[in-house]
């Protein structure tokens, strides 16, 4: 009888740990794979909803919030003409970013994503927001790199923002091409903490390097 109790305990242990660990990992992994199929704003809305479901079920995890915000930032970039809508998507992303800052204030990736969001705010209306938001975005990548000097996404956003400004002013961008190339070469040196931690950005850096040719 003793053994049965032990067995039961073992079985139930397996069940509970599945709910906390592998199931979460699995659900995240499956949902992250969904990025590959997203082509329209509606697709990203669907993906954001999936992450939101995980957010609601896993109150202690910041990663689902991260991707939830990330999807909405991408939606803002994809929206072509409606400025109000672009800002509305970013309002949703901002709420998730702020929640993460409360949850994990020392996580470098959160500030990199915040910088990405602020860049998206700038893009909505560059003429009036350019000055203020380029400073804010620069401050966020600064915080991100302060927490983890190797964060390749913060580095990418820095290069991309500064290059954008330089192009706007018609100045020489070769300096940023060199930086982008270097970042791409060393991209894989940065090892995400787990398979579900942020890993995006390499494609975008490749695009920059490509555009320099």
């Amino acid at each position: 009888m003793k053994k049965v109790v032990l067995l039961l305990a073992a079985v139930s242990f397996v069940f509970t740990s599945m709910a906390d660990g592998p199931e979460f990992q699995q659900a995240m992994g499956k949902t992250l794979a969904g990025y590959a199929d997203c082509k329209t704003i509606e697709d990203f809305q669907g993906l954001a909803n999936k992450f939101e479901r995980i957010v609601n079920a896993e109150k202690a995890e910041w990663l689902p919030l991260y991707y939830h915000a990330h999807c909405y930032i991408i939606m803002s970039f994809m929206e072509q003409s409606d400025m109000v809508k672009k800002d509305e998507y970013l309002d949703v992303a901002e709420i998730s970013v702020n929640k993460m800052i409360e949850m994990v204030p020392d996580e470098s990736e959160v500030y990199a994503l915040q910088a990405f969001m602020l860049t998206a705010r700038l893009v909505v209306d560059p003429m009036t927001r350019g000055q203020e938001y380029s400073i804010l975005s620069g401050q966020a990548t600064g915080t991100s790199l302060g927490l983890n000097p190797g964060n390749p996404r913060a580095k990418y956003l820095n290069i991309s923002n500064e290059m954008g400004t330089a192009q706007f002013f018609g100045s020489d961008v070769s300096k940023y091409c060199v930086q982008a190339k270097e970042l791409l070469e060393n991209w894989d040196d940065f090892k995400p903490a787990s398979p579900i931690h942020p890993a995006w950005g390499k494609d975008q850096v490749e695009e920059i390097v490509e555009s320099c040719k």
Partner: peptide
């Protein structure tokens, strides 16, 4: 309403509404 999030509270099970 397209893009609404429908789910069973406390689980990952759910879907988004279509167009």
């Amino acid at each position: 309403l397209p893009g609404a999030n429908i789910y069973i509270e406390g689980t990952y099970d759910g879907a988004s509404s279509d167009a």
